[in-house]
Design a protein around this nucleic acid. Sequence first.
DNA 1: ATAAAAACTTAGCACCCATGTT
DNA 2: AACATGGGTGCTAAGTTTTTAT
Length: 574
Amino acid sequence: MKSKLSFLLITHIFVYFRWEEERYTDGSKWRFLEHKGPVFAPAYEPLPEHVHFYYEGKMSNLSPPAEEVATFFSKMLDHEYTTKDIFRKNFFKDWRKEMTSEEKSKITDLKKCDFSEMSQYFKAQSEARKQMTKEEKLVQENERILEEYGFCVMDNHKERIGNFRIEPPGLFRGRGDHPKMGMLKRRIRPEDVIINCSKDSKHPKPPPGTRWKEVRHDNKVTWLASWTENIQGSIKYIMLNPSSRIKGEKDWQKYETARRLKKCVDHIRAQYRDDWKSKEMRIRQRAVALYFIDKLALRAGNEKEEGETADTVGCCSLRVEHIKLYPELDGQDFVVEFDFLGKDSIRYYNKIPVEKRVFKNLQLFLENKQAEDDLFDRLNTSILNKHLQELMDGLTAKVFRTYNASITLQQQLKVLTSPDENVPAKVLSYNRANRAVAILCNHQRAPPKTFEKSMQSLQSKIDAKKQQLFAAKKELKVAKSDTKTFHAVSRVVETKRKAVQRIEEQLMKLEVQATDREENKQIALGTSKLNYLDPRISVAWCKKWSIPVEKIYNKTQREKFAWAIDMADEDFEF
DNA sequence: ATAAAAACTTAGCACCCATGTT
DNA sequence: AACATGGGTGCTAAGTTTTTAT
């Protein structure tokens, strides 16, 4: 095991060294890229003869493609989305576009459609799939596809591709109250796909009888293939896996920018505090917004086109209705209450005392405005980012999130780690530090459906373990007194003592697990770990306390953070 | 200068499967 | 062997930032 590890380590250093030599000075360019192109979604199998669709109670024969479209709806029948009016309206509208003229005149009302038989069929199918053995599931076939299409060669290195499959057709499900939910997401064909690869590579071949939309050779961008999606009209890309050089370097760069912010953040903070007093409204707004972004780790908040997406906001797009001002609340002065839906329609709710000057400014911004008016009417993300750019090269709003997340982790690790704790307790401390960041960044999750139950069963395990400990201690006592009374062999005492110790450790482990899980109920740690925390902080912490890095990062994460694992020693300071 | 498009990062959730338990 | 459970992974939507067009 050990030799394998050190071999890997050497390989990594070697690889990075090689890359160093081969790379252009501008790290974003590649010189050679070869790949096999994307994998297309398989065609739907027609429904078997005995599965029918009913209209007004009568059996009805549908011909493709309408059948294929109806399939999506029946597959989702028990999903809460399908009970929403917008979903049904959008679905039916798009379905009608796919109907033959005969169907179109016949099928005029979604309420009269009965998909239950189709729905049952798909449920049965997925049940059946669960029973299948590995061969039946075509595991090997999938592995072969991964091997053939899942990798590319960039700058002479074989790299894993992130998403090499074209997204299959289906019904669009946005998050939150999305006006387009239920719309038909159409099938992507080779004719929709642009291929990007190097001029001198073997071009990926389109499936027989088809052609690509375009083959281009643009080495200033990192995607291998792209297509335009029909719901929002945005472009989707096929790109490399996070373990790739091109992503890893970018990630590293991101944290280096955040570290540069660390050096000038005091100055920037002094500056925006000063700007709270500015004569110009736009500067005051900019300064207050920046204060929120810095202090509360809010997102920038771009404007969004109304009716195209769910109504969510970030800092610059906050509206009057999203904040409440309390000159005094629960013994604290100048409290601002935030309540709005952010990215992914996740609710941000926070009551926070602010400086008097900020409070007065907010009152000023709210004057003569309606609930639906912008709080910062003289500000948007591009104004803000332009200003930030002047303060520091490469500074944008999101750098504050990265900086504050990483610095919080580092601080919390210092505060929470006690040297004499054992490994599980230290890992708990790490998770707590991680959790502080997740709370700061408002990374939430739905409590797991089985949460209560699994918590209970863990508790009963703990109780059982306590009983066991009690019994073991008693046995130890008996053994001790036996030794005294009968001059028996002390080996027995040793064994008993070891048993007590072992059980104590097990109990401790369970208790730590319970605490960890309880505190984690509604908080998602993964996002901050993956996107906001400089991995070198974690690696350094592991080295300092002799914690195996595997306790903190799983295999995928270790691959993504290979650069940091190689780079950081225990003295690393963010 | 501004708007729109393109490119790239961040996000939560469903599902799958290894693992441990009964 | 059947079952539960939780972590890992794939998926793709939803953001931010950068680039290009007007």
